[in-house]
Design a protein around this nucleic acid. Structure first.
Length: 123
RNA sequence: CAAGCAAGUCGUUCUAUCGCUUCCCUUUGUGGAAGAGGAAAGUCCGGGCAACAUAGAGUAUCCUGCUUCCUAACGGGAAGGACUCACUUCGGUGAGGCCGGAAAGUGCAACAGAAAAUAACUACCCCUUCGGGGGAAAAGGUGAAAACGUGAGGUAAGAGCUCACGACAAUGCAUGGUGACAUGUAUUGUGGAAAACCCCAGGAGUUGAAAGACCAAAUAGGUUCUGAACGUGAAGUGGCUCGCUUCCUUGUACCGUACAACCGGUGCUUUCAGAAUGGGUAGGUCGUUUGAUCGUGCUAGUGAUAACACGACUAGAUAAAUGAUAGAAGUUUCUUCAUUAGAAGAAAUACAGAACCCGGCUUAUAGGCUUGCUUUUUUC
RNA sequence: GGCCUCGUAGUUCAAUGGAUAGAAUAGAAGUUUCCUAAACUUUUGAUAUGGGUUCGAUUCCCGUCGAGGCUA
């Protein structure tokens, strides 16, 4: 249930290009969420990206990526899968903040972002 | 004892819950094992490995530059030599740097100064027709630097012009050293700068794992084969499956057959259907972690390092794993209480994340430990 | 992963190895005006950083830091 295996990560170059060319995105600071409807074998594939421009050191980028991934892993079932309705989706999370935030702050913001995603998805 | 600086070295631990990557196992699941560094960083050097290229001790370009050694190699390291600076008990000690050549050639040196390398302003000496001509380079002043320094002889005045002592450089010889070089001696000479151009010696083929090798879906197209269909430009004319003429978008050939026709065969153009096949995209596998490997011991060597013996297997991801949360402990600092031990609270716990692999260099680093130096205080 | 270029006043740019690093604009003060603007006068302010070569370094050499670009 609380898994995050290889099938749930977005690895295909083609799908990535498709995702970033789509216009269906919104901003909820410090995240920018991109999503796209796609036929897959798993409910959702996720990609997390932290810009090198804002975080020079690899250690900082790794830390943020691990925190975001952990929050997604623990909350994906009730927050994302619940409204998908047997369909599948591509998800991109861009971190656009300028400093390293704490786990609790990131958790609050990301859950809010998932609520917003549900609204825009149902439209 | 404390503080500071420099160098070296180590560089947190445990528990619970939920996970990630690789490997193993007929208990295939509530399974087991392993899982970042001293710099993984910067990409500043050197190699391995791979593909391509290759007449050359050529030319151009770039790099390196005291000696000997180590090494796979190096711009790295070890030991030493000379130089500069600091200290000195004058015996040395410590630190530093791209440390070949200025006596091959070209160019450069602002301002000041007569003059910045073919010296001559004032002053000096000789001659004079008093306009000047000649000699000489000690003294003055300028400058970062002024024609080797001091003393004596010498001279019209002077000058390494000569002599003594001394400084430095080049060359020859002798001695010591593997050598750089040192010491002595003879001869010749005396400005700086090559991190200006340049000369000399040595070295460098180019591109980098996104190299390269292999497997290869779907779709489109290429090639080949099989089958089917279609096509010998149009118009006019004659002796009409043929020849001739005209026009256009310039258009079917060969063989069986002496000529023409027919017939047959081979081939060509276009379309359709089926089959095979090569290249190759998405994607995947290898390259890829057993290696100039690590640990211990012993031997050789001043040392870097090397030889030998025994033992060990120690990350392998690919939009990229090695984590998140909670709690406890350890260490350090501060405050309060205690003033022997200690107790409570607060804060901090670094720099930083493998990406083909090694050897160096450089830079970052909380805190602990070791060594050296400096300073202050106390005691003797 | 590999390679290249650049760093000068707050900003945009200059400067053969040579005196106190220059210009425009911005800032400050003053003149002018009833006040503001414009104009005029004066003035402040910089070689990314640490070493080295040189009599002397923005310039030459080496290390570090930062910024930008090329390559697929």
């Amino acid at each position: 249930m609380y898994t995050f295996k290889k099938e749930e990560r977005l690895c295909s170059k083609k799908l990535l290009d498709k995702l970033f060319q789509s216009r269906s995105s919104f901003v909820l600071y410090p995240f920018r969420i991109i999503w796209l409807h796609e036929e897959l074998t798993v409910p959702a594939q996720l990609v997390i990206s932290i810009p090198k421009r804002n975080f020079k050191k690899a250690v900082d980028r790794n830390l943020l990526k691990r925190r975001i991934r952990e929050i997604y892993r623990l909350h994906k079932t009730e927050s994302v899968y619940s409204f998908l309705d047997q369909k599948s989706i591509l998800l991109g999370i861009n971190y656009i903040g300028k400093e390293i935030s704490e786990y609790t702050y990131l958790k609050k913001k990301l859950l809010a972002a998932f609520e917003k995603l549900q609204k825009s998805y149902s439209k």
